[in-house]
Simulated assay, not measured.
Amino acid sequence: MKISSGSRVLVTGAASGLGLALVEQLAGRGARVLATDVHADAPTDLAALAGVAYLTLDVTDDTHWARARDWVVEEWDGLDFLFNNAGVAAGGRIELTEMDQWQWIVDINLLGVARGCRTFVPMLKEQGTGHIVNTSSAAGLVHPPRMSEYNAVKAAVVALSETLLHELKPFGVQVSVICPTFFKTNLTASMRGKDESAQASAAKMIDGSSRTAGDIAAVALAQVEKGTHIILTDREGRIGYFAKRFLRPVYYGQMAKAAVRMGRKD
């Protein structure tokens, strides 16, 4: 399904990072975009884009999702693409991860996606067309140590996306899931947790990446248009994913070495 001039697109987590990059590139293609985020007003970067409307949307709030659906019905009478992109970061050793941190990341990264799908699937099924694009992570496919809560919710997003791929195919609705590795973003600003060494390691990999959110968005949109289900945006992600599938003993060995290296740094 092509993203073209006039395509109706909703993006969550649109104020920064990958969400903002997606909105910029979608607007550049002439799409009509409803950019959403938790801010009360549109940030400057969004407000300056032609063809982009803004709506406050907390992905953990059912009333916000209902309001977004009503906006789409009233303004567009339908939706072509739903990008469930909003997310936060967390990580650390399991004994240092408190349960309120688990609840926080589950509510946003998993249930936020589930709420978005649940809200718009009836509309897309009735239309007989549409494309849901959920943002997960390479951590949803391969599971490094000291990232238990992040790995778990991102893996759940992959599972949800595959379930919907099969469930919605008879209704003409497509589903993709974006699985990038580390890229330059402000995700570390949202990071929580008591394991400071784990957070420092993650920040180093994010800040040290040569990839930008714009790079990831460009690959993702090209693959969405091709109808790709699991979108691997970079070489490292492809290596990890296929190593796990076809060279599992090697994959396990590398993960064990990573755990030992991390332990020596603490």
Results as ranks from 00 to 15, higher is better:
28 G>R: 01
28 G>H: 06
31 A>D: 15
58 D>E: 12
46 L>T: 05
59 V>E: 02
86 A>W: 00
53 A>R: 07
113 V>F: 03
19 G>F: 01
30 G>V: 06
45 D>E: 14
106 V>L: 15
78 G>Y: 11
30 G>W: 08
70 D>Q: 11
106 V>Y: 03
94 I>H: 05
104 W>M: 08
104 W>K: 10
85 N>T: 03
83 F>P: 00
57 L>T: 11
109 N>W: 12
65 W>D: 12
35 A>F: 02
30 G>S: 10
10 L>T: 07
13 G>Y: 02
52 V>F: 10
91 G>R: 09
21 A>H: 03
62 D>Q: 05
30 G>N: 11
20 L>G: 05
36 T>K: 08
92 G>C: 13
94 I>P: 14
67 R>V: 06
23 V>G: 12
104 W>P: 07
36 T>C: 11
22 L>S: 09
82 L>P: 08
34 L>I: 06
28 G>Y: 13
58 D>N: 15
99 M>T: 15
100 D>F: 10
41 D>K: 06
105 I>P: 07
60 T>G: 03
75 E>Q: 15
69 R>H: 15
15 A>N: 09
11 V>Y: 08
25 Q>S: 10
50 A>H: 11
86 A>L: 03
12 T>V: 03
42 A>R: 07
41 D>H: 14
89 A>Y: 03
37 D>L: 00
97 T>D: 14
71 W>T: 13
65 W>R: 00
81 F>P: 09
74 E>N: 13
33 V>L: 03
40 A>I: 04
79 L>G: 07
98 E>N: 15
81 F>M: 08
109 N>P: 07
62 D>R: 12
42 A>F: 02
101 Q>W: 14
11 V>F: 00
44 T>F: 01
97 T>A: 12
80 D>R: 04
87 G>V: 09
9 V>A: 04
19 G>H: 08
16 S>A: 08
62 D>K: 04
37 D>Q: 02
12 T>L: 00
106 V>H: 10
73 V>R: 10
49 L>D: 11
78 G>T: 10
22 L>E: 06
27 A>S: 12
36 T>N: 10
27 A>E: 07
19 G>K: 00
76 W>N: 04
66 A>T: 11
86 A>R: 01
96 L>M: 15
31 A>T: 15
94 I>S: 14
89 A>I: 00
9 V>P: 15
9 V>Y: 08
20 L>H: 06
66 A>N: 09
15 A>Y: 08
83 F>L: 12
41 D>V: 11
25 Q>C: 12
49 L>E: 12
61 D>Y: 01
59 V>M: 00
81 F>W: 05
9 V>F: 07
108 I>T: 13
20 L>K: 02
49 L>A: 06
45 D>G: 09
101 Q>H: 15
9 V>E: 06
62 D>N: 06
42 A>H: 08
96 L>W: 14
23 V>R: 05
